[in-house]
C-alpha cells in the first residue's frame, strides 16, 4: 500500500498540487487520499503526504489532529456519524443514538465486534429538517427511525459480505 507511485492517485494528486499557489495548501486533500488508501491517517500516510509537500511529518500530523474528519486510528468499514446537536436532539436524536449504540453493542466512538461499524456522535451536519440523520462514510442518510436503520444495517452488512470487485 502506498500513495506515492500508486497510479490510482496520481491524477488527483497532480490536480490538487496544481490548484493552489503553494504546495502546503494541498495538505488537506492529500490527507483524504491517505485516509482512502490506508483506511485511516496512519504514520505511513502522513510520511508520504509530508514527502510530497516538502513538509515535516509533524506539521502534517498537526493538521490531521486538528480536523475531525481525519481518523488517527483504524476504524470499521462504515463510519456512522450521528448528529446529536440541538435541532436533531429536539427530534429525538439522543434516543435514536442511544438505541443505535445498543443495537451495535458499542459506546460512542467504538467499533462493532464484527469490525464493520464505527459510531460517533457529531455536531450539526446541515440536515436539521431531516432529523434524526447521520452520515455513513460522509454520505447523507436522513429521516431515520429504528426500522429504517435496521434495514440499512442489514443492507450494509450484506454489502460488506460481497466479494470486492474492481
Amino acid at each position: 500500500m502506498a500513495i506515492i507511485g500508486n497510479p490510482k492517485y496520481q491524477e488527483r494528486i497532480q490536480h490538487h498540487l496544481a490548484k493552489y499557489e503553494t504546495k502546503r495548501s494541498a495538505v488537506m486533500p492529500l490527507l483524504y487520499i491517505a485516509q482512502e488508501e490506508y483506511g485511516w491517517v496512519n504514520p505511513e500516510g502522513i510520511g508520504e503526504v509530508a514527502q510530497i509537500l516538502d513538509l515535516d511529518p509533524t506539521q502534517v500530523k498537526s493538521i490531521a489532529g486538528f480536523y475531525t474528519m481525519y481518523s488517527e486510528k483504524p476504524k470499521g468499514k462504515f463510519w456512522l456519524h450521528v448528529c446529536t446537536d440541538l435541532p436533531c436532539a429536539l427530534k429525538g436524536a439522543d434516543d435514536f443514538y442511544a438505541w443505535l449504540k445498543d443495537e451495535l453493542g458499542v459506546d460512542d466512538g467504538g467499533t462493532s465486534a464484527d469490525g464493520l461499524f464505527t459510531v460517533e456522535h457529531v455536531m450539526c451536519l446541515a440536515a436539521c429538517d431531516k432529523a434524526p440523520m447521520l452520515q455513513c462514510n460522509f454520505r447523507y442518510v436522513e429521516d431515520l427511525d429504528q426500522d429504517k436503520m435496521r434495514d440499512l444495517l442489514a443492507k450494509w452488512r450484506e454489502e460488506a459480505a460481497q466479494p470486492v470487485s474492481g
Binding site: 440541538l86 435541532p87 455536531m123 450539526c124 446541515a126 440536515a127
Partner: peptide, 10 residues
C-alpha cells in the same frame, strides 16, 4: 455551512 440549525447553502 456549519452553524447549528443551518442548511440553506446546501
Amino acid at each position: 455551512e456549519s452553524e447549528t440549525g443551518t442548511f440553506k447553502d446546501r
